[in-house]
Write a protein that binds this DNA or RNA. Sequence first.
DNA 1: GAATTATCGACCAATTCATTCGATATTTTT
DNA 2: AAAAATATCGAATGAATTGGTCGATAATTC
Lengths: 192, 192
Amino acid sequence: MINKEEFRKKIIISSGQIFRRFGFRKTTMDEIARALKIGKSSIYYYFASKEEIFEEVVLYEANVLRNELTTAIKSVESPVDKMRNYVFVRMKAFEKLANYYNAIFDKNLDHFDFIETVREKYDREELAILRLILYDGARKKVFNVSNSEYTALAIQTTLKGLEVPLFWKKKELNIEERLNAILDVLFYGIVK
Amino acid sequence: MINKEEFRKKIIISSGQIFRRFGFRKTTMDEIARALKIGKSSIYYYFASKEEIFEEVVLYEANVLRNELTTAIKSVESPVDKMRNYVFVRMKAFEKLANYYNAIFDKNLDHFDFIETVREKYDREELAILRLILYDGARKKVFNVSNSEYTALAIQTTLKGLEVPLFWKKKELNIEERLNAILDVLFYGIVK
DNA sequence: GAATTATCGACCAATTCATTCGATATTTTT
DNA sequence: AAAAATATCGAATGAATTGGTCGATAATTC
């Protein structure tokens, strides 16, 4: 009916929801199998281990976010709108990310470096995107930035600042109400 | 510093958060102890078993909801406002209840009857409250109900209808957006 | 009908977990 | 300050859970 690769993806998506909800340790292979209505041993035909599934879930989820952000940027023309959209979507994504942080920090620390690598890569990409938007905006004289590199770093840091509560309380953030305030602060002094 | 009964309550509140988040099975005594910064064995000085803690958590949480609802009713005068407040608070409470349903259904089915008893009691009380408000409103001629008993049952059934999704998907309901619609439907044909 | 692909039940070793228990602090009472 | 009562904990345990293996056997493809 469907090929192996597709079924792997099916497992990734399904188990992703469980990992997100319960974290790595508290998610059992039995649960993953039950959710897919297959035998537990069948999973090992597609994946070598629980860890492998989890790592692919993280990778997959990172890609989903990447795509959402790319779409958000492409859907508008002006650099100002691009930046606004990016920040908006990225902030909305935190609510989902919150659950992944639980899953990740719950994990045995042995393979923590894998997550770190994924995150570092994501951060580098983000920085490049921000830099590009800012640079373009400066060129078109809608942004008032002298050094796109530094401003990109500043914006990213603000964005990261929103994540900090996730490390402390395992609750969703109330992004909605802060959204406009933060957007204003971010753009104050940048937009001409 | 504080007496035994107070410390029991502390345990109930603290472990309640964990139960709510992970369910009965996935909550460990170690976690409960760690959250309270005490040794695992110390818990058994206050409670006989994990089950006992859980049951008291359910009881406690039911009381919290009870109080919230009572306050919501007492804070206003007219029967119409009372009814509106009750329905509103009860609906808002679902978001919290959603987590408890997870905790409860996750539990071994052996002691399911305990939960059922608690719920039945709660339902009876709710019915009495609704009936009282309706009866009072009818007497004051602000409600157009001929049989408070039946109307109370109808309203409770609608309220319960909102819970059904909790049995299927383990997600919070988006109460907010349905709120006004449902309030309108509920009161349509009742308020004079 | 042989070869390949996919699924599964039964099993295992390792770990996790709730609970027990004796020892020892800490506080209260006498 | 001794005795009694209250409170805390580390270590141990037996039972249950869990990630993973393996051989058998379907189901599908060639």
